[in-house]
Amino acid sequence: MKKNVLIIVMALFSLTVFSSEEPYKEEMGKNIKSMEKAKSLNDFQELSNKFERIAKAENEKWLPYYYSAFCTINMSFFTKEKCDQYLDEAQKMIDEANRLSPNNSEVETLQGYLYLGRIMRDPQTRGMKYSPMATGCFEKAKALNPNNPRPYYLSGQNLLHTPVQFGGGKTVACPILTIALEKYNSFKPESEISPNWGMKETEELVKNCSK
């Protein structure tokens, strides 16, 4: 009997030790799911907060920082006034993610995404500075992981919004978006909670290309 108890107690213990990854994955997975439904500044704020809490509690994981930054960048698109403040905050989290996982294609892509946010605030004044910076990030992200579809998607989207005179437009952007879609189709995320966004948007853009 004593033995039995010991086994049970040990089992209980080991379960808790063994499963410390489980609540993390569960919580992350839940938040990533609701991210797909997020539509407003408040939605993204709440999610960014959730990811930030996980990031702070886990301390050494890059993904919660990554997602928190991603949500915060999305927040910046809803407001002109606080746009830069949100992006500054997102930058801090990207820096953390970068520290925890250097030379990560996904983090590099996110950095480029942040620069696109800077451009959105005032394209005429900022395009000249941030556009090459964003392109640089996407190129680096492609080099780090040629299978990552997101840098293709974002650079294609950026080119679509760039005037023809600046080297943008449909004819340049669409082939890149088509590549992005191909890459999405064959893309296997490392884990359930690894970055896996952008496919729907890419499909939409590619549809528009053929119009």
Partner: peptide
């Protein structure tokens, strides 16, 4: 302040302030 992050240190437990 809506949207503030409220949580216990080193845990997932927390919430955001409402509007």
């Amino acid at each position: 302040l809506p949207g503030a992050n409220i949580y216990f240190l080193d845990s997932y437990d927390g919430t955001s302030s409402d509007t």
